[in-house]
């Protein structure tokens, strides 16, 4: 935390410490600002709380791959402005 209250933006190897990530489902877009090393479970929980969803009924995808709660932006090699897609659970049986 710097003296003027701004978040730490330590450029390490040209990368910002915080990323702006867009989370979108078919109806809403929500922007998150998240540290590179923060687990995405926080982001998921925040999005689900915000949308009033059950965490188990949604699927988060990044570049077509399912995102795990233990992933973080570093492990997924996410860049500033990347998008997480959210899809609802589907079932079928009849």
């Amino acid at each position: 935390m710097s003296d003027n209250g701004s978040p730490m933006q330590k450029p390490e190897d040209g990368q910002q410490e915080h990323l702006n990530i867009k989370v979108t489902d078919n109806n809403n877009e929500v922007f998150f600002k998240i540290k590179r090393t923060t687990q995405l479970s926080k982001l998921m929980n925040a999005f689900c709380d915000r949308q009033g969803k059950n965490m188990q009924s949604v699927r988060f995808l990044f570049d077509g791959q399912r995102v795990q709660p233990t992933d973080n932006p570093d492990t997924l090699d996410m860049q500033d402005g990347d998008t997480l897609e959210v899809h609802q659970e589907q079932i079928g049986g009849c």
Binding site: Q88, Q90, G93
Partner: peptide
């Protein structure tokens, strides 16, 4: 294929058939 594709966030669980 599932008929629940493309639904919106208002639904929790969707679809009836694969």
């Amino acid at each position: 294929l599932n008929d629940g594709m493309g639904g919106t966030s208002a639904e929790e669980v969707r679809g009836t058939h694969w």
